[in-house]
Each structure stands twice: as C-alpha cells, then as structure tokens.
C-alpha cells in the first residue's frame, strides 16, 4: 500500500508485508464471526423445522410464542450479519484512496468493532473516550487502521498470557490540540508497558513512517501515545 515514488523500497516492502498480514488477520476474525452468526440462523431455522415435524407427528399446533421467539432470533442475527458485512465493506474500501483526512475516532471505532472477537478472546475490553476536539490526520486510511490495530495488539497481547483469568481493560483517548493530533492507549491501573515492546520491529517502524507518526511513552509506563510528527490541518 505504499506510493510508487517512495524513496525507501525496503520500508515499502516491509510495510506491504505487514499490511497483507493485517488484512488477513481481520478477514479471518470477520469470517469467523460471520460463520457464528450463520450457525445461529441455521440452528434456529432448523429448530423451527424440528417443531413443525414434531407438531405434525403429534397432531398438535406449534406454540405461537415459541415460533415468534425463534423468528425474532433469526431476524436479529440477520441484522447482526448485515452490520458485520457493512463494517467489513468499509474496511475493504479503506484502500480506495491515496492520502486523505482521516477521522481518528471513527477509525478507532471501526478497528474496535472489526477486532471485537480478537480483543474478547484475549480477555480484554476496550473503552474509547470521545475526543474533546476533532482529531484528524492526513494519511492513507488503510494504513491508519493498521496502525490502530497494531497499537491495540501491543497494548492487549504483548505483555500478558492470553489465557490469563484477569480481565484486561484498555482505554483509548485523544489529545486536545487540534493541529497536533494525539491518540493515547492505556491499560488497567498498575500495568506497565515496556519500551522495547513499542513499535520496535522494522515492520512497526515502517508503519509509523508511512503515517508520519511517532510513539511517545506515558509516565511510569502506563501506556503510550501516537502523535503526528508534523502539524495537521484540515
């Protein structure tokens, strides 16, 4: 997803590899979610069929309340699947444009909903505190989505056992400077993040370079912030 005229082909190659991996991770989570919703619809439709067979055999009518409850469950899950597909469609179209102004709150919310299963599976919950002022940066939308996903991954998973019983609380908040956008990621009190886990790999550095952002540790390792390396307007 890198521009053809980029003077750093190695950075481009690493960023492209990471982008493909990111797309795969979200597509896998998304299709898993879709399969689960289809399975619920399948079982409820099957249950209606089972009740019809039973009713025919016993010559008794199907309980209308039961039938209506099942029908409502099917309708609810069709809506759920529709929302999932809309989100995935928005994600897929994030590659349509070159650089544009990207709303960071909207982007964080999209990543949060797309990766809900991944976050939940790691025993984490995510709270997004709305920005006090609009937070927008000029970048490729897909790369920004990737960066936010990577930030959540570092915050959620790089420091703890995924099978741990402790519920992890993650919070995303935004800075108040309109021209110097900043997004901060923190974990539950007492959590300490290690500097060497922060966007330290060549792929991470390539990702940051592509959105022209830098990473800043928060006091006492309570979390980290992503800040623009130059003022943003728009």
């Amino acid at each position: 997803m890198s521009p053809n005229n980029d003077p750093c082909p190695e950075t481009d190659r690493l960023a492209d590899m990471a982008d493909v991996k990111f797309f795969g991770a979200l597509a896998a989570a998304m299709t898993h979610d879709m399969k689960n919703v289809l399975a619920i619809i399948n079982e409820n439709a099957g249950l209606l069929g089972d009740l019809a067979v039973k009713s025919q055999k016993k010559a008794t009518p199907i309980d209308p309340l039961k039938a209506s409850t099942i029908s409502e469950k099917i309708r609810k899950n069709v809506t759920r699947a529709d929302h999932m597909m809309k989100r995935f469609n928005r994600f897929s179209h994030s590659m349509d444009h070159a650089e544009e102004f990207v709303d960071m709150e909207e982007t964080v919310m999209l990543v949060a909903s797309l990766s809900e299963r991944i976050i939940r599976r790691h025993g984490a919950t995510l709270t997004v505190i709305p920005p006090p002022v609009p937070c927008r940066i000029h970048a490729r939308r897909f790369v920004v989505l990737h960066l936010i996903f990577r930030a959540l991954d570092i915050l959620c998973c790089n420091h703890a056992d995924p099978a741990s019983d402790t519920q992890k609380q993650m919070t995303v908040r935004f800075g108040s400077n309109l021209t110097r956008p900043e997004i901060c990621f923190t974990r539950d009190p007492g959590f300490m993040i290690k500097r060497d886990a922060l966007f330290d790999s060549p792929k991470d550095r390539a990702l940051l370079a592509h959105v022209k952002m830098k990473v800043k540790m928060m006091d006492a390792g309570a979390g980290f912030c992503l800040c623009t390396a130059r003022p943003e307007h728009g």
Partner: peptide, 14 residues
Amino acid sequence: EQEFVETLSERLQM
C-alpha cells in the same frame, strides 16, 4: 456463542 449452543442443545434433546 450462547445463543448458538443453547439452540443446538435443544435440537439434540429433541
């Protein structure tokens, strides 16, 4: 997936 597994369980009981 609670809704899935409860419905499947009901169908197996049938």
